[in-house]
Design a protein around this nucleic acid. Structure first.
Lengths: 306, 306
DNA sequence: TCAAAAGTGTTATCCTTACACCCATGT
DNA sequence: ACATGGGTGTAAGGATAACACTTTTGA
């Protein structure tokens, strides 16, 4: 046991910074979409979270509503010639405003540029059924016996078109990686002749992005995080489209509304908007109080008599 | 952006290693329970997970069934005189066997030695109602206006006796920390005259432990991780007591059994055991297949027509 | 014979799912 | 008038919560 001596390890911070722009879920990137914003962990940051907040807000000039740690990766650059190891701590950040672009070649990119098979808002993506699934099938067939059965089960469990689970975005990417169907899986970069559609990123940034998307998709189900991405006032239709954008799935209108109402997540502002294309809609605002009121979480354990 | 130069940062690994010993959930500790096992992150470990696995298995001589990353902390030792920062990456590990004790002063300690207010298996803990809650109440009263209301709401949300939520173990500890009711909250160590009951740990190890417990309590509800802590064959009663030990709550027998059955989590071995104290019980084993079959997770989103 | 735990059966309730319809605006 | 989205009511089904009771052993 005990505190380690300083080692040749560099610690870097990564951010998956998300915003909704025109019903599209977008992520802030650099270098024409090839990288997530990253920065060194400065020793003078009081906490990790503060570090992330500081440099993201500095770069984008917008306050970060919500920040949560995603994961720490260190199994990268294994064959680095630099002689030291990089530990990268990744964060998910949600922001309400469009960040000032231009600086440092910042730019917003849709989630689904990187993961086209994850957008089911217009039904099962053709890319999935026509390209991804057949490729995975070949990968399954290429193995034999036990390995084949295991591959089969993993594909079925994660890519089942008849019971699609949007939360498994990370696992699906990892499976494609293992199957050698994404460019990042090979080194040198060009070894994969014909990857599956979907823009790659450098290093493991696409994996980090997948981690963020999966986490966000899981979280919207039991925590009111969508509101971090919404303007102060919004219609229920906008709210629904926001959730649909993140989940990559269409929702049932009436049931969605009942859910939102009965959980007391929102309250009417009294105002209306006519920018709907149809009947004018009531405007609502998020009830911030409930975050404190209900620490919440759904118990699935069959408790004994109270 | 870009890769950081090496900085004076040390990376250490922490493990919350859990086993069930005689219906008590226990954690592996050093130094008479004051520390969690920790080790430096060796640059030659291929991955972080492999690093944890390697040194835990080396120290305990038992295979680690399940390992998952918990959290990365870096806001510690802020005033360290050593001149460098420590980033510690913590892991949760589940093991089926009792680790070989003796070496390095390893020892198992019950969760509830550190968090006595978390064990509701015999009803609301007296420590909670007689000591913790009154102290929190004083803390609430000590503030005024807005601050008071916020404190009030946080206490109610996390410590509500009438709707106890076992998953909030971490938040409760953090609240006690903020309220200055645990010794770790002060430096020098002796500044808190009369802390709430519950054994402290050095550094922030108790917080890490709370993180592990909270994660485990959340996870048993939607992933079959309990089985990592069970012997290969077990009775349904044993299984129930295992979940009860982790959750710190009593469960409803019949409903628990139905849940286990209808999810196809277990299968009969055909054998019986008479070590029950009553009627002999059927032995079951975990159906490992289902982990692959169902990538699972409960959708709470009201999806539109399939 | 009695305590202790295993094991079975059934009902009430709530939440989720699904269906079908009306309303108010812009073009 | 009609297309477009906003907004409402209600019934069916399934999962959960809660009830009470029988069975088989060891002491």
């Amino acid at each position: 046991m005990m505190v380690a001596e300083p080692r040749p390890v560099a610690v870097e911070l990564n951010a998956v910074l998300v915003a909704l722009i025109g019903d599209e879920p977008q992520v802030l990137t650099l270098e024409n979409g090839a990288l997530l914003p990253s920065g060194p962990f400065e020793s003078d940051h009081p906490t990790l979270q503060a570090g992330v907040r500081a440099w993201v807000e500095h770069q984008t000039h917008h306050p970060l509503g919500y920040v949560e740690q995603l994961y720490t990766f260190a199994d990268r650059y294994r064959e680095s010639t630099l002689g030291y190891r990089i530990v990268s701590i990744s964060y998910l950040g949600l922001t309400r405003e469009r960040a000032a672009a231009g600086q440092h070649e910042l730019g917003w990119q849709s989630f689904y540029r990187y993961f086209p098979w994850e957008d089911w808002r217009e039904g099962p993506p053709k890319i999935l059924t026509r390209t991804v699934l057949p490729r995975l099938k070949s990968w399954v067939e290429a193995a034999s016996d036990d390995a084949k059965r295991r591959r089969q089960q993993r594909v079925e469990g994660n890519f089942d078109v008849s019971s699609w689970n949007e939360e498994l975005a990370l696992q699906r990417y990892e499976l494609l990686y293992e199957a050698g169907l994404v460019p990042e899986a090979s080194r040198p970069r060009d070894a994969i002749v014909d990857p599956v559609p979907g823009e790659p990123m450098r290093y493991d940034h696409r994996r980090i992005l997948a981690t963020g998307i999966a986490r966000l998709r899981a979280k919207i189900k039991y925590r009111p995080v969508v509101f971090e991405l919404m303007p102060p006032d919004f219609t229920l239709g906008q709210l629904q489209r926001a959730v649909e954008a993140l989940a990559g799935r269409l929702l049932h209108k009436q049931n969605f509304r009942r859910l939102v109402e009965q959980q007391w997540l929102v309250e009417e502002t009294g105002a209306m908007t006519a920018d709907t294309g149809g009947r004018p809609a009531k405007l609502y605002r998020f009830r911030r109080e409930i975050v404190l009121e209900r620490a919440v979480a759904g118990s699935k354990l069959p408790l004994a008599r109270a």
